[in-house]
Design a protein around this nucleic acid. Structure first.
Lengths: 213, 213
DNA sequence: GGATAGTGGAAAGCACTACTATCCATAATG
DNA sequence: CATTATGGATAGTAGTGCTTTCCACTATCC
């Protein structure tokens, strides 16, 4: 197929497709003559993936380019790709170390110890968590940190299900892509479910008060 | 205190504080003379809240302005404020209705039915969920949708804990702010925990294989 | 009282992101 | 053979989140 059909089938405007190719997000089409190229379903799938990560996952194009570049490089071991993904998926905290952040890091270490989680406190996810805890305290909502274990209880089965889902993949590229999609879109899926559950919970709690939550 | 001290205590540069005042995110200081104003702890807290929502929550300044404006307006009933928050927290999906979105809406309605959740399928959270499901299918990862119930099981206790946390507030403004903070930063907190749990789960699953996940 | 630093307010400028528009020579299509 | 589409390049654009610069004025220190 040529770029027009690719555009129609993916819903992405032609100039935008060209832009993605320029930016290295999408491989160029196979040239059939000096100014004609053909695209296949791989291009279409890649385009849909880009739009999902961009629109729903909220990743930046540069983050997507980096992640997809690692996915496409067969020389990259799987865990390196996931490292890239983990770094680029995290909103990239400022590096100012205040007292709240020091406390928060201790909280994270204590949580890992308490739950017996086999993870380093200073891995990207641990740093992200510490950043959130510090922000909560700085914003005057340190009390929210008490919910850590409730949240962690909920995160465990979700993480197991995620791993089980990606574990069904055999091809390296499929596996890596599943992890990226699962991590990014799974986050959005849980967030939406949590807000739906808020609506339900407050409908139950304030049954006759006209919807407080 | 004057703007310099406010800046030092909050870590936000003076021109940025001025900018936030201009944009209506932060109320102006109380003028003590034509070109001197004084700020109090309320300003400091508000600044920390803005930075938390911006840096950790990933909200845009315009979304923050809208949410805070509703929080500050005592005439706004609580549930209206939450409506504003819900709308602005969601990444604002495109409005293109494809076959995947129609299927996804049915999935959401079925989920609510199945679980007995008291929420409308077309509320902001429901639309957000449908958007995610549709994006998963479009990206070729419709299988991930099978995890919906695992995720929903996890979301329920989290939502109950959230409501319990905000339920301890008495003053209207405290309550509303708690909901906003809880919704936005709670999302970030769960996301980080989930990724930490991924690290743990894959350390267990691939114990001696050099860290596959 | 005089130098220095800080202040409120306004305006302009800037870096970045994600496109969008325009142009061109060439190629496919009816 | 006219119309439309294509690949490729360059330039322009809208929005976001600041940052810079300017000004007259005020506070502070010696």
């Amino acid at each position: 197929m040529r770029i027009g059909e690719l555009s129609r089938r993916s819903g992405v405007p032609v100039p935008t497709v060209k832009y993605y190719v320029r930016e290295g997000l999408l491989p160029p089409g196979r040239l059939t003559s000096p100014n004609q190229a053909s695209y296949d379903e791989g291009h279409e799938n890649r385009l849909r993936l880009i739009r999902a990560l961009l629109d729903v996952g909220g990743l930046s194009l540069s983050a997507i380019a980096e992640v997809l570049g690692a996915v496409d490089d067969p020389a990259q071991p799987v865990h390196k790709v996931l490292g890239v993904a983990a770094k680029r998926i995290t909103p990239a905290e400022g590096d100012e170390v205040g007292p709240e952040l020091i406390d928060a890091r201790e909280d994270v270490a204590a949580l890992l110890e308490r739950r017996g989680w086999r993870a380093e406190a200073d891995c990207p996810a641990g740093q992200a968590l510490a950043g959130v805890l510090a922000a909560l305290r700085r914003a005057g909502h340190g009390g929210f940190v008490e919910l850590l274990d409730v949240y962690a209880d909920a995160a465990e089965p979700v993480a197991r299900a995620d791993l089980d889902y990606v574990g069904r993949r055999v091809a390296r590229e499929d596996l890596v892509e599943s992890v990226v999609v699962g991590t990014v879109l799974g986050e959005a899926m849980f967030a939406a479910l949590r807000r739906l559950a808020h609506v339900d919970a407050s409908a139950r709690a304030y049954r006759d008060e006209g919807g407080q939550g």
